[in-house]
């Protein structure tokens, strides 16, 4: 099928986004102010307003385009778009929703693996100890992303400045934090099943 033509196949894509995010996609009238002010557009495959447009159209082949895009992982949540949107449409939040959906569907862009690796390491650390320790985070991330040598020159300074600690601090309530993680993951999974 043509890469530039979409059919009018009905899809649940639009409804699913709206259900998760408490967003009304029809609110967007495609003025493009989000794209005009986005700091990351130079690195994106689709401009933010194009992502919104494809979500509005909601056709099946667009689900893969959107959830598999680089754009959703390059968004740094600076919220410039949401702040300036004349329709009060929370694009930054839409990006959160799309990342969540992208991960669940296993559609995440290959280039996003670095970012996802970072998030994963981060969350694992917090889940285990209740807090984040950036040294294990950096090490763990470097192992996951296989990007072993960048920034190594900076570590000695950070260690001598006592900016990196080797041993993570563990909070007393870490069981409670672990439980919060478990419950949140379970509820998201349940919501996803409910959709299907």
């Amino acid at each position: 099928m043509s890469n530039k033509t979409v059919s009018d196949t009905a899809s649940s894509f639009t409804a699913e986004i709206e259900g998760r995010g408490r967003l009304r996609l029809a609110d967007c009238y495609q003025c493009g102010k989000c794209s005009a002010g986005c700091p990351m557009v130079d690195y994106m495959d689709y401009l933010p307003h194009q992502i919104v447009r494809m979500c509005q159209m909601g056709e099946d082949s667009l689900r893969e385009k959107v959830l598999g895009s680089r754009t959703i992982w390059l968004c740094v949540s600076c919220e410039t778009c949401s702040t300036r949107c004349p329709k009060d449409f929370d694009i930054a939040h839409l990006m959160d929703v799309l990342r969540e959906m992208s991960l669940e569907a296993g559609l995440q862009h290959a280039d996003a693996s670095n970012i996802i690796a970072f998030h994963k390491t981060f969350k694992n650390g917090v889940e285990k100890t209740g807090r984040l320790n950036e040294f294990p985070l950096a090490i763990g991330y470097k192992l996951r992303s296989m990007d072993l040598f960048s920034d190594v020159t900076k570590f000695p300074k950070m260690v001598t400045a006592r900016k990196l600690r080797f041993l993570p601090h563990k909070i007393k309530g870490r069981d409670k934090v672990k439980k919060i993680f478990a419950k949140c993951e379970a509820r998201i999974r349940a919501k996803k099943r409910g959709k299907k």
Partner: peptide, 21 residues
Amino acid sequence: DWNCCGATAAHQTNHLLALSL
């Protein structure tokens, strides 16, 4: 006994976690 706020990693991947932490 405060815990990590979850930062970007939480709200970019699990909106419930992003509020709960």
